[in-house]
Computed example of a mutant assay.
Amino acid sequence: MGIRAAIERKIKVLEVYGDSTLVIYQLKGEWETKDPKLIDYQKLVLELVKEFDDITFHYLPRDENQMADALATLASMINVNRQEDVKPIQMSIYEVPAHCYNIEEDEEKDDHPWYHDILQYVKNREYPDQASKNDKRKLRRLVIDYVLDGDILYKRRKDQVLLRCVDAVEAKKILEEVHEGVCGTHANGFTMARKIMRFGYYWSTMEGDCVNYAKRCHKCQIYGDNIHVPPSPLHVMVSP
Rank of each mutant, 00 (worst) to 15 (best):
L48G: 02
D111V: 07
T33I: 09
Y101N: 10
S239I: 11
L234K: 13
N188F: 08
Y115W: 11
D117F: 04
D129R: 14
D35V: 05
V238P: 04
E176T: 12
Y202V: 10
D110E: 13
V238N: 02
Y154R: 04
I24R: 02
K136T: 12
D135C: 07
G150I: 15
E8K: 15
R137A: 09
M1V: 15
S239T: 13
C183G: 12
I39N: 00
G208F: 01
Y213G: 05
A75V: 13
D167M: 07
D209P: 12
A168G: 14
A6Y: 05
D209A: 11
I103R: 04
I3Q: 00
L44W: 04
P240L: 03
Y201D: 01
I196M: 00
P36V: 07
L234F: 07
V13E: 14
K12G: 07
K219Y: 05
A6M: 09
S239D: 13
H112E: 06
T33P: 03
E15T: 11
I39T: 01
A75L: 04
E84R: 14
V147D: 00
T73R: 09
I174D: 01
E47G: 04
E64N: 08
L234V: 15
T73F: 02
T205F: 03
K10I: 14
Y202N: 06
C220S: 09
Y146A: 06
M206L: 13
E30F: 10
K87H: 05
N212H: 09
V16K: 04
I78E: 08
T56F: 12
L148C: 04
L27H: 08
Y41C: 06
F199G: 03
S92W: 14
M197Q: 14
I11N: 02
T191A: 11
D35A: 12
F57E: 00
W114M: 01
S76M: 07
T21S: 04
Y121K: 07
E126K: 14
W203Q: 03
T73G: 03
S20F: 12
I152N: 02
K87D: 02
L38C: 03
L153G: 04
E95K: 14
Q42E: 10
R156P: 01
R157M: 15
V143N: 00
K87S: 06
R4Y: 07
G2M: 09
L44M: 10
V166P: 03
E177A: 14
A6F: 06
C210E: 03
D151S: 11
K123A: 07
V211K: 03
K136L: 07
D40H: 11
G150D: 02
I152V: 15
T21N: 06
Q26N: 03
E8G: 12
A70N: 10
G189E: 06
E64A: 10
C220R: 11
S76K: 10
N188I: 12
V169E: 04
E84K: 15
R141Q: 09
M237Y: 13
G2Q: 08
P61Q: 01
K50I: 05
L139W: 07
R141F: 08
R164V: 12
D167N: 11
R164Q: 10
N188V: 10
A214C: 09
K123M: 09
T185I: 13
I55L: 03
A131Y: 05
E95L: 14
C210M: 08
M192Q: 05
Y121A: 05
P61V: 09
L139H: 06
V178N: 00
Y223Q: 02
V45F: 01
L119A: 10
W203E: 01
K133G: 06
R194A: 12
C100Q: 11
S132M: 04
D85L: 06
